[in-house]
Computed example of a mutant assay.
Amino acid sequence: MFKQSITVNELPEDVQAELLQLRNMHPSMPLNSHLSWLRGKGYEVSRASLARFFDIKGVALNSEWECRRQLIDAAERRREMCLEMANRVYVGNDPKELIAIAEDFLSWIEETEISHKVPPEASL
């Protein structure tokens, strides 16, 4: 059972601090994920209240479309870097083998990033 809907300013100070820390650690995290995180802690807060809170605290908000674009751009840069690394170590002529090596690099990077992902209770 959720508590009655409140404004973010009515949240306990430690929850507000955690919320700001979560935002700082994951700046591209959509507002809906923050709302889900708060719901997981038993607080029902409106999207508008959350946006006002971040605005008052001077936290820049990106549109969800811009966040997705940034994630896609980052993924593309990561793929390009892996292909460049593969090209440096591969001595053959087969493009398929080169791509396979790049994909292995990418898999390794993604496996090592697990500790930096958004906590499960914060994701949608």
Rank of each mutant, 00 (worst) to 15 (best):
F2N: 01
K3V: 02
K3E: 08
Q4S: 10
Q4N: 11
T7P: 00
N9H: 11
N9L: 08
L19W: 06
L22T: 01
R23I: 09
M25P: 00
M29T: 08
P30W: 15
P30N: 15
H34K: 06
L35M: 11
W37Q: 02
W37K: 00
W37P: 06
W37F: 11
G40A: 00
K41A: 09
K41G: 06
G42F: 08
E44M: 14
E44G: 09
V45Y: 06
R47I: 09
A48K: 08
L50K: 06
F53C: 04
F54C: 04
K57T: 05
K57W: 02
G58A: 04
G58F: 00
V59C: 09
A60P: 02
N62G: 08
E64H: 10
W65P: 03
C67D: 05
R69I: 00
Q70D: 01
I72P: 12
D73Q: 06
E76I: 14
R79D: 04
L83I: 13
M85D: 07
A86H: 13
A86R: 14
V89R: 15
Y90C: 06
N93T: 15
N93P: 00
P95W: 11
L98S: 07
I101Q: 09
A102T: 03
E103V: 04
D104G: 10
S107N: 10
E111M: 14
T112C: 07
T112Q: 13
H116W: 07
K117E: 12
V118W: 06
P120W: 01
S123E: 15
